[in-house]
Simulated assay, not measured.
Amino acid sequence: MAATDTFDDPPIPELLKRAGLLRRQGRFGSATQLLWARLESNASLIELCRKGSERIAGSEAILAQCDQKLEVARRCLDKPTRRWSFSCRWSFSCRWSFTFWEVLHEVDGLLLLVMPQAMLVPRALEIQQQFERRVTDARAALWLGTDRKNGPLPHCVRRLARLDTDGCCASTSPPLGGEELGYCRHVLRGALDTVNQQVDKTFWQLSINVSLQVFSTLMLLGVFIGSAFLLSQNFVEDWPHTLVRKGLLLIGLAGASGSIASNMLSKERFVVATGATSRYFAYHLMVKPVIGAFAALMLLFLERSRLLLSVETRDASSSADTGSAILHIVVNDNQAAFFTMVALAVVAGWSADRLLGSVMDKVLTRLLGQSEKVLPPPGPPVPPSEPIPEAQ
Results as ranks from 00 to 15, higher is better:
P378Q: 12
C168F: 08
L35E: 14
D108Y: 01
T32H: 10
F235G: 09
G190C: 05
D321K: 08
L265W: 03
L220Q: 12
Q213P: 09
V382Y: 02
A118T: 14
R162L: 13
R133D: 12
E14A: 09
I329L: 08
R74D: 15
V363K: 06
D315T: 11
G379L: 05
P154A: 03
S371F: 02
T32K: 03
A316R: 11
I62A: 08
L144G: 04
L192M: 04
A343M: 14
V359W: 10
S97Y: 11
Q128T: 05
L15M: 02
E303F: 03
T172P: 00
A295N: 07
D67P: 04
Q335V: 15
Q65I: 03
A345F: 07
V346Q: 10
S44I: 06
C94K: 12
R279Y: 01
L356I: 15
L300I: 09
V214F: 10
L368N: 15
Q198Y: 03
R74L: 12
A3Q: 09
M219E: 13
A57M: 02
E386T: 11
A118Y: 06
L163R: 14
L356H: 07
S227L: 10
P376Q: 03
S318R: 12
E180F: 01
V199C: 08
T6E: 11
Q205K: 06
R279K: 05
R50W: 02
A37Q: 11
G247W: 07
L327D: 13
A61G: 05
F235T: 13
P122E: 01
W204T: 14
W36D: 13
P80V: 00
L302Q: 09
R366Q: 10
V342G: 13
I12R: 12
M219W: 03
